[in-house]
Design a protein around this nucleic acid. Structure first.
Length: 951
RNA sequence: GCCCAGAUGGUGGAAUUGGUAGACACGAGGGACUUAAAAUCCCUUGGCCUAACAGCCGUACGGGUUCGAGUCCCGUUCCGGGCACCA
């Protein structure tokens, strides 16, 4: 009786053994080299894991196991990003405490994860919502509060140093409030009056990366601009370091590019502009200093305080009206609608280069938050200035030879400069020198203008960044509370030794009736400075008892330094001990979705750089190598209901019409429009709906009438979409584990395609992987159920098959090309089966090779082969080229009446031997027969080209 | 508009990095075993032409370099991603 591949028993057995023997426990071991593998930890949602989640976990698990087999001490932890909006919204709806639902979800996640056989060290699990974890989030915030960014040193320094500096300068104010206000302008975590993205529907502010196309990323609600006092993190101070760091890490080019765009460095020039007939001047920022001769007007941002200063009395009314109009527009409107608007301020600015007086306008196309909020307009060479000039009928002066600006501006930075100046009297002389750019290329002209402006003190060279400070306050309940109380409106830090300050209980999770954040509902939320403890709000006297901050921290707070906590998760003295941080350094391999490119991956880098400045983190960059796993999409199924009826029509009976306005197809049945309704994929087989099953699903279907096609089937329409509960296209990994086993699931998820690519889940192919594992299993057993391995020496063919595989798999794993290893496994297994390989040596190494991919079957076979230890502690086989290469003819080609062919030979052969071997190789003989050797060329390595012609 | 990454059978995708394009898998078709089904195994499967052998064409399109191009260079088209009144 052949031994059956009973994956259920095998997997159960090894899950138990791994847990009992703590196979995946890791400790710092100075004698071994470390390797740190990390997945972006999941938010435990109520829907549980779907097959898309484990994709990255499996990929990193394979790598972690591979590294361990290579002798590295591998840290591969897992935890939960447990604070988040969905739990809070669920709490608002049901009254259930978010902690309860979050912990339930975590248990469910853990159960699902355990089934897949990951090598996580669960002793190191972290949850961002537990006090022993968020103590260190609060601690880091306080450190940021007590630090400033020293521009010269380009690093964070204690705020005390700045106070000393102010005292030495004599600029340190006596008043406590003034002191606080002054320091606020420098602290890395600071309280600022800023324009924020306010989302009324969610009742909270959002960070820039949480707003997409003017609506909230979550829920798609409108977002408006509002001025609020908020906690902010001075991320912008680190712009240059965030940019420079990208050069030192191995991330995909596209993510690096995204971050570069987000940071948005632009090198330019700031120039002082005097306002004519007024005692005011202002600064403009430009990257095109070469176009100073083409300036025909200036523009101020409507929000700029300069507007008020320069506006002349007769234009006051018009300007005020315009500002009112701008304020009435939402972020969204400004984004979509680019019609030209603006108003003349009545004032004129003097171009310091030409001496010309140019009108100053106020227009919303200039943004207050970037540069200086004021620009010089060069309509000939900037499309926005061009549109504005055309609209207000302002002059356009072309400055580039051959550029035609009659229809549109010439924005390119290529060409030769002219009209600069038009004539000598159009160029102001400074200390006897005039700026002359004619004949220079644009790039040369920029450099020359910079030099001129600097030399004559007209302005300065300036680098601007688009990256804004992160808004760090949220008007929510389910987040980290700030360790801050207010004394006469001045924020004070709760003493470090009192941390963590725990999230208070509330009876309602909504904002209070007076519009305060949900923490306003807490009755015990005041700080007593005498006892250093949280006390009842009713005792607030603003003498010794003060109100505590009502805001909570945003989602990225807890996820910004979690990788450091995994190094030393139970330490209550420090975020991470110096020993642990020194040993583990930083994450070697980080795996997660690319959707975090401008969120978590920026904040985390910022946070780590700050901790690096403090000496807590030992590496400037937290994640050395980053792999972005693609999304696994689901197949959504639609049935079509005739409008205003309860009739459902088979998809193939519908007439399709494309609607240009809506950019989608509409469907009709006998002239009646049919609307798509999601059907759960479990009710669909291929594209045929199980009508009986869907009737059991919901009442609307139970009563429904189903109009079938002529084959008596109901056909559904299918589309590939993101896997989501609401689209009823979720495939649960538990079902796959149940029917095929975790090893097949692991293998199949990798086989689906390149790890970085998004691809639809398609169960059809899973049988192939399952069949392979059965075949692999069969290789190890005789027909009677006994082990097939013996002590026979492997044949040359055995070694060739094995080493071909070792080479391929080792190379593939290094570059995360697992999907191409799997065919290699299949081929090798077939070859060894055909060779009737029984050699224990070969079979053992084969088990080790598959162990990272399919740990359960590997453990079982490893044990069956007589090993007492786990296959995890085996050694990764090394590849030896000598088994691979005999001489093989690569490719004969004909040209010019000659034939050239290439032989592949072992690498360590001498040049003479290569020639001799090549000419006498059996493969070559058939080509050489009756031919004359014209010339041989040995290509470096082991390729030889032999040119021959007929005798 | 600017920047980045892509395009190979019916499908997912291979191709030792310039050397026999289409590995492996799915799907499809045919066959074996079986009373039947499932499972398993074998064969065929880029296109055209052909009874077959053979032959020709094929890696989005157009050029180029090379003895040789899916791979390198130039141009075009299309799809995906990022940024976007950022001066």
């Amino acid at each position: 009786m052949a031994k059956e591949y009973n994956f259920r028993e095998i997997e159960k057995k090894w899950h138990k053994q791994w847990a009992e023997k703590q196979t995946y426990r890791v400790t710092e071991d100075k004698n071994r080299k470390k390797y740190y593998v990390l997945n972006m930890f999941p938010y435990p949602s109520g829907a549980g894991l779907h097959v898309g989640h484990p994709l990255g976990y499996i990929a990193s698990d394979i790598y972690a196991r591979y590294k361990r087999l290579q002798g590295f001490n591998v840290l591969n932890p897992m935890g939960y990003d447990a604070y988040g909006l969905p739990a809070e919204q669920y709490a608002i709806k049901t009254g259930q405490h978010p902690e309860k639902t979050t912990f339930q979800n975590i248990d469910r996640y853990r159960e699902q994860l355990d089934k897949i056989g990951f090598s996580f060290d669960w002793d190191r699990e972290v949850r961002t919502c537990t006090p022993d974890y968020y103590k260190w989030t609060q601690w880091a915030f306080q450190k940021m509060f007590n630090s400033y960014f020293d521009e010269e040193l380009q690093k964070a320094q204690p705020i005390e140093k700045l106070i000393e500096k102010f005292k030495a300068e004599g600029t340190w104010p006596a008043d406590e409030k003034e002191q606080s206000d002054l320091l606020m302008q420098h602290r890395i975590a600071y309280l600022g009056e800023t324009m924020v993205n306010w989302c009324p529907a969610l009742g909270t502010v959002l960070a820039n990366d949480e707003v997409v196309n003017g609506v909230s990323e979550r829920g798609g609600y409108p977002v408006e601009q509002k001025k609020m006092r908020q906690w902010c993190l001075r991320v912008s101070a680190y712009s240059q370091r965030l940019l420079d760091g990208l050069e030192t890490i191995q991330w995909s080019e596209s993510i690096k590019e995204t971050q570069k765009n987000w940071i948005g460095r632009s090198e330019g020039t700031e120039v002082q502009i005097k306002v004519a007939d007024q005692d005011v001047d202002f600064t403009i920022f430009t990257t095109r200093a070469d176009t100073m001769f083409g300036v025909t007007f200036f523009v101020l941002a409507p929000e700029s305080e300069l507007v008020d200063m320069v506006t002349t009395p007769d234009q006051r009314k018009a300007v005020d009206e315009y500002i009112k109009y701008v304020k009435g527009r939402t972020e969204r409107e400004r984004m979509i609608d680019h019609t030209v608007t603006g108003v003349f301020s009545g004032a004129y600015g003097i171009n310091p280069i030409t001496g010309d007086k140019c009108p100053i306008y106020v227009a919303e196309y200039v943004l207050a938050g970037y540069g200086t909020g004021a620009i010089m307009a060069v309509p000939a060479h900037d499309s926005r200035d061009y549109a504005f000039a055309k609209h207000f009928d302002l002059p356009i002066i072309p400055l580039v030879e051959g550029a035609d600006v009659s229809e549109e501006s010439y924005d390119a930075k290529e060409g030769v400069v002219m009209n600069s100046p038009i004539s000598e009297d159009k160029s102001v002389s400074y200390e006897g020198e005039r700026l002359i750019l004619n004949g220079l290329t644009i790039k040369e002209a920029i450099a020359e203008t910079k030099r001129f402006v600097k030399a004559h003190n007209l302005g300065r060279v300036k680098v601007n960044y688009r990256l804004r400070d992160a808004i760090f306050s949220r008007q929510r309940y389910w987040g980290e509370p700030f360790p801050v109380y207010y004394k006469n409106g001045i924020p004070q830090m709760i003493p470090e030794e009192c941390l963590p300050i725990k999230l208070p209980q509330v009876d309602k999770f909504l904002p209070t009736e007076t519009g305060e954040p949900p923490l306003g509902n807490a009755t015990k939320w005041a700080w007593d400075t005498k006892t250093n403890s949280v006390v009842d709000c009713s005792t607030i006297d603003n003498q010794t008892v003060f109100p505590i901050e009502l805001y909570t921290m945003p989602g990225f707070a807890g996820s910004s330094a979690y990788y450091l906590r995994y190094m030393d998760p139970h330490n209550d003295e420090a975020l991470v001990s110096d020993e642990a941080a020194s040993y583990w350094q930083n994450v070697d391999l980080y795996v997660g979705g690319s959707e975090h490119a401008t969120g978590h991956l920026i904040y985390s880098r910022f946070w780590n750089k700050f901790l690096f400045d403090l000496g807590v983190s030992k590496k400037e960059e937290p994640f050395q190598k980053l792999i972005n796993q693609g999304m696994i999409q689901g197949w959504s199924s639609f049935v079509y209901r005739l409008r205003n009826t309860n009739k459902f029509v088979s998809f193939d009976l519908l007439d399709e019409q494309y609607d240009d306005a809506k950019k989608k197809s509409l469907y009709y049945y006998q002239g009646v429009e049919a609307d798509p309704v999601y059907a759960d994929i479990s009710m669909v087989n291929g594209n045929v709906l199980d009508v009986e099953k869907i009737r059991e699903w919901t009442p609307e279907f139970r009563e429904g009438e189903f109009i079938l096609n002529q084959n008596g089937q109901y056909i559904v329409n299918q589309a590939i979409e993101k896997m989501s509960k609401s689209k009823y296209n979720v495939v649960n990994p538990d079902d796959i584990c149940e029917n095929y086993g975790a090893d097949t699931l692991r293998l199949y998820e990798m086989f689906l395609g390149p790890i970085e690519q998004s691809k639809p889940w398609d169960v059809a192919g899973i049988d192939g992987c399952f069949r392979f594992l059965k075949k692999f299993w069969t290789l190890y057993w005789n027909k009677d159920g006994s082990l097939a391995a013996d002590d026979s020496e492997p044949t040359a063919d055995n070694m060739k098959s094995l080493h071909k595989l070792i080479k391929k798999v080792s190379e593939d794993i290094e570059v995360f090309s697992y999907n191409t290893s799997i065919p290699a496994f299949m081929v090798a297994t077939t070859e060894l089966t055909n060779q009737k390989c029984r050699s224990r040596k070969v079979l053992e190494q084969l088990v080790v090779l598959i162990a990272p991919f399919c740990p359960h079957i590997a453990e079982e076979l490893w044990e069956a082969l007589g090993n007492k230890t786990s296959v995890c502690d085996a050694q990764w086989p090394s590849f030896d080229e000598k088994y691979l290469v005999e001489s093989t003819v690569k490719m004969p080609v004909q040209f010019n009446g000659k034939v050239r062919f290439t032989l592949e030979l072992p690498a360590d052969m001498s040049k003479e031997d290569v020639e001799k071997t090549a000419l006498s190789a059996p493969d070559a003989a058939k080509y050489l027969e009756g031919q004359q050797v014209v010339k041989t060329v040995v290509v470096p390595g082991r390729i030889i080209n032999i040119v021959i012609k007929p005798l």
